[in-house]
Amino acid sequence: MSNLLNKLSVRSPWLFRINAGSCNGCDVELATTALIPRFDVERFGCRYCGSPRHADVVLITGPVTLKMRDKVLKLWDEIPNPKVTVAVGICPISGGVFRDSYSLAEPLDHLIPVDVNVPGCPPRPQAILEGVVLAKKIWMRKLGIEEG
């Protein structure tokens, strides 16, 4: 029974977005391009939700700045398990154009486990959607379900 529920559950990933000090480029590509009706993220069963309590897939944009580090960690803890983290853009990976800046904390994967990286400055909306689909597969692996 719980296996069946788990199998069904990965077909309903709800998305939540955290801006960890992004320059807003990735946010434009993510929230106002990839998640709008034109690219139809709803066909994967996704829904954009405003509350971290509803989220399954967390999309994080931006290099983690010193001011945002604790807030990102706190917000990430608010999300109920099981959850999948997707880092959008080059910034969460290495800092991107802000690399070696005095105001950056550390790369995102030093703070929290990152499951999918979507590189690009900014990445194309199609790439972000591919990241979401990959996140579904990783979610299945986390639940211990074979891909079928």
């Binding site: 719980s2 077909r11 399954d56």
Partner: peptide, 26 residues
């Protein structure tokens, strides 16, 4: 979804959403 010229979710989606919510932690 069709009114907005996109595909939209499968017809079983509300059931999937509820199944998903039941597996999540409270």
């Amino acid at each position: 979804a069709r009114v907005q010229r996109r595909v939209g979710p499968p017809l079983i989606q509300p059931v999937l959403d509820i199944a998903k919510l039941l597996t999540k932690e409270t």
